[in-house]
Write a protein that binds this DNA or RNA. Structure first.
Lengths: 208, 208
DNA sequence: TCATTTATGTGTCAAGCGATACAGAATATA
DNA sequence: TATATTCTGTATCGCTTGACACATAAATGA
């Protein structure tokens, strides 16, 4: 029993990529079905048949973003030789991803649904969960460094992880405002400049 | 020749404050006239008579925000005894402002209109200008430190100013995601931990 | 007292929103 | 070839959006 009925006349994966870019550039609320119809070059009944709803389409777009763009940040982080290099790589690859020519600037997951207006509380919370996962993964990387003896046990690693995630998220806004790749890399360098001081925190929580 | 005609039956300043809080919480696009009518407790013809349009109302709301909430950050920065204290104060006051109980979290100017959907390009650009001004003011404070001999002439002060603004903007997103005031203050501490290293940058741009 | 001026509440406008009903077209199975 | 199945384009649904027309209410000035 193979495929029944009239075959789909458009490339579902390609259409999803287009949708992802529109959501990425304009956010969930800022993207209308008209925008999607134009970008995907697919009429709305076919979009609904293939993806279910605007909400479901956004969910798939976010999943695709995490696999592709977001995945490059993560994999770069996990293959780094040291904890410090992992953080540095995360920030530097983020700077590059957020300023790719021909692509929307900044991060879809950070900028996609920040406000809780009337109907989009669900999507906002889902992106919030994804953002929280980024923190968790960075924190796990730090704790691995501690477990392996690379890093001391004293510092507030959660605070440090939060700091670097905050810098990364701020870079999304900077990218949206037109910051160059070079400028974002300089921001990453500045953040890394804090590392040595942060790692050598004393018991009382103050820098040496 | 005093006031002619029927007097206004609502407090314009109070209604503007209410509007500001709605825009602050939901953004420009995310806020509908229905939301404003409900929050301000004023019917739409009266809103249009008093403020002109949704766009003009948002403009006034942003101006009010800058005078009040934003003003507290700036004045704290200008009265600081040293450049380092100015930056530290800016970040710490930001952490406090972004987590005031009973108020929307994060910064109206940072979060108010990030996307360029169909009709709001004008407001996005205006907020962008305001954000650029924040960078300019911080940079001027740094250059003052250099001029007064407090700081050396070598470091890329624009990059350093951009770094601290990036942290501040990232804090808006963190605040939106529910970060506690304590957590944001810890982020500020981490950012400040970078200061000494940044100030002592060598000619070649690498840390000592 | 009465014209003038300004603000108010009711009701509504055209346009756009997300989502579908429907009939026809294109495939697989029987 | 006949039938069942699935996708396509047209056209439109009910609803919300930002904005405003209109008649009325409440003030001042002559």
């Amino acid at each position: 029993m193979t495929q029944r009925g009239r075959p789909r006349s458009f490339d579902r994966a390609a259409a999803l990529r287009r949708a992802m870019e529109v959501f990425w550039a304009q956010g969930y609320d800022g993207t209308s079905m008209s925008n999607l119809i134009a970008a995907m070059n697919v009429n709305s009944p076919s979009i609904y048949a293939a993806f279910g709803s605007k909400e479901a389409l956004f969910r798939e777009a976010v999943a695709l973003y995490r696999e592709t763009e977001g995945g490059r940040i993560l994999s770069a982080m996990t293959t780094a030789p040291s904890t410090r290099a992992a953080i540095e790589t995360m920030l530097r690859v983020s700077a590059e991803e957020y300023t790719r020519p021909g692509k929307p600037r900044g991060c879809l997951i950070v900028l996609g649904a920040l406000h809780a207006d009337d109907g989009n509380e669900v999507m906002r919370r889902e992106l919030q969960v994804h953002r929280a996962e980024s923190l968790t993964m960075l924190l796990q990387r730090l704790k691995r460094g501690v477990a392996e003896g690379e890093l001391p046990n004293g510092p507030d690693w959660r605070a440090i992880a939060t700091f670097y995630i905050t810098v990364q998220q701020g870079m999304s806004i900077q990218a949206r405002d037109g910051a160059t790749r070079k400028a974002l890399l300089a921001v990453a360098d500045c953040a890394i400049a804090a590392w040595d001081g942060l790692v050598s925190y004393r018991r009382d929580g103050r820098a040496l």
